[in-house]
Design a protein around this nucleic acid. Structure first.
Lengths: 210, 210, 210, 210
DNA sequence: AATGAATGAGTTTTCATTCAT
DNA sequence: AATGAATGAAAACTCATTCAT
């Protein structure tokens, strides 16, 4: 029904409103120092309301991360089957996707990476964990296709494509994470893009045969 | 005097005992879920004793990280002036240093990287922050020497050596961090070394001219 | 609106409820031996709730003192401009104000005096400190008016009126403080009022010319 | 024996050394914020040693107060039987004793007054409490003699001499306490003596017949 | 659906005191 | 007698979460 649809849309909108506020606060304070009350305040809602849309703080945080992971994955998938692009072009496009997502929302991307490592991961519900794994797997599948294509065409080094895809993901996201920490340490904002581009270029060069 | 020396050694040993216990607990629980009480229990000491050796929880945690950072730096410095090694050999040695340190103590190395990013960094005393910066700077200086040598000998790509050193550090540690998170996600312990080696090899290849 | 007003009144009431409980516990145990948990228990609230109304233990304690200081000041101000009363009457009224406040709430008045001395003072927020100074200043101003009037009319000794006001405040509150300590030491409740009256009478006599 | 005597004297000296250090630290920090460790450090002794000379922190603190109380009492007793002095002279001498003791060691005198009021008093051993009462009683007895003499000679107002003595003690010490707190609030060091003298003069005037 | 006041478990940290050396 | 490392009880305070309205 129209009414029902509107209700659903409103609900979704409220969810977004909360996530937007959460992003700001998590970004400024980090997961632990961010309080639900502050997020609620930022969203101009009461603390209790947050719990109508998210089971708990952890899940609110994770939702942000899954969001960006999905977005990154969608960006990659978009051109993976593009017939007109060479594998090298696609590698560049992958690089750009990472850089763009990072520039669009550094904090959430960083949180995503942190999410997958260590502490946080241990306290997630199976469902959410599954969602992360699935999306990660999707992204990795797409990258594997690119690498496979490059190997098939003889432009990439001959290695197990899954391993290569994994390494691409590892290096790219690892570098983003690292560079971001450097940025925080040095407050050198400009150096980020430059470093990312150069790093990815070097890694890309390493992928090419000879 | 002998007595004084023994006391100092005992004190240092007690510090180690606490750090060892802290490592176990932080590793199992992460920073936030780890409690000082549990660490004290693990060290078979009382909570109060921990505060005789470390100002607070944060500093205990940071001490672990600084330790491994120093160790990593010392490993790198060891061969940086070695006349017999080619720059490529040194690059391999650098790779091995990272892998070794990671294998020796994955958790603390990971913490080190996390330490330098975001949230944690904000609550450190100037002194400790300075120590981190200094040791980081030492490590980076050593790597820069290696890169410079490679450029001078025409075997590495011609770029600003400091930027290259930075990228080396970024990619290597970023990859370690990432791979570790994959390990936790997948519980595939064996895949770690393989991935690290391949990743570092690819990055290394990207550094070489042509 | 009515609803908002009711909420504000309820909030104020809750504050009072906590302050009432705090008064009992501080009175029985003193500041240091009183625990927030006990105060919470006395107020039939949980410890956390106390912190919704008072920033910390210190401020809860100080709030009690400021309250009574304000009350005492208001008592003094009430008759200071009274045309019908002679300066001597006003001096007696001042004496009665001190005695009444003391009898109404000995402990908090004592705390007020303690508050302004030494240790406690050092840990107060600027805002609260300012409030104390302001109210103290108000009280002193009122007393100065009385003294000035007495001097002008030639019934009080000729001294700097501010200094005299200061001494009035000092002697009155000092005596209250002291007599209270005697009461605690001797458990002689009855002797308090008698002593206060006589002491104030003597001091008053000293103020009069000849 | 000479040896025994020396030992006793050494012990007494060590006690003094600790009390001296305690005075400094209590003075700077107040009772609660002062730590036994800091006092030990100031005395160039170890914490454990303090407990060889004082049962606990409370008793160390109280010892300081009793000391000064005894000193003040001895000062008063000195001239109480002096035939040459008029009761008015003796009242002035009493005033000077208070001022001198205050100027000699403001903090300990203040502590003494605080000691007798409220919180601290509740946790003292009977023995120590008795000692305080005894010395207080001695002092009060001496003052009563002075007042009695003044009444007998018809220069002081006719009241119960014990009550008058009590009021003298109350006003004098109360004023000292209060003026000291003002000093802390205003950091006007010079105003102290002036205020004390004027206050005592006024009170003294109130004691005189007509 | 939204509120927001109240909860209370959970943690860090302090420091007087002890006791083996 | 002196030490000082270790203790561990105690307390303030935080904040995710709940639930009556």
């Amino acid at each position: 029904m129209g009414i029902q649809e509107r209700k659903i849309r409103e609900k979704e909108q409220r969810r977004r409103q909360i996530m937007q506020a959460a992003k700001l606060v998590f970004s400024a304070k980090g997961f632990n120092r961010a309080t639900m009350e502050e997020i609620a305040g930022e969203a101009e809602l009461s603390p209790g309301t947050l719990y109508l849309y998210f089971k708990n703080k952890e899940e609110l945080h994770t939702s942000l991360s899954i969001d960006i992971l999905k977005y990154l994955t969608s960006q990659i998938k978009e051109y993976v089957d593009e017939k007109e692009m060479t594998p090298e072009d696609k590698l560049n496009a992958l690089r750009d996707a990472f850089i763009n997502v990072y520039e669009f929302d550094a904090m959430v991307l960083i949180n995503l990476f942190h999410l997958q490592s260590g502490e946080t991961l241990k306290n997630l519900s199976g469902e959410v964990l599954q969602q992360i794994k699935q999306t990660s797997s999707d992204a990795l599948g797409a990258i594997t296709s690119i690498v496979q294509e490059g190997i098939d065409q003889g432009v990439f080094i001959e290695r197990h494509p899954v391993a290569l895809a994994d390494i691409l993901w590892a290096t790219y996201s690892g570098v983003v994470l690292w560079v971001d920490s450097k940025r925080q340490l040095n407050n050198e904002k400009d150096f980020v893009r430059q470093t990312l581009e150069t790093a990815f270029e070097i890694i890309g060069a390493g992928f090419k045969k000879q």
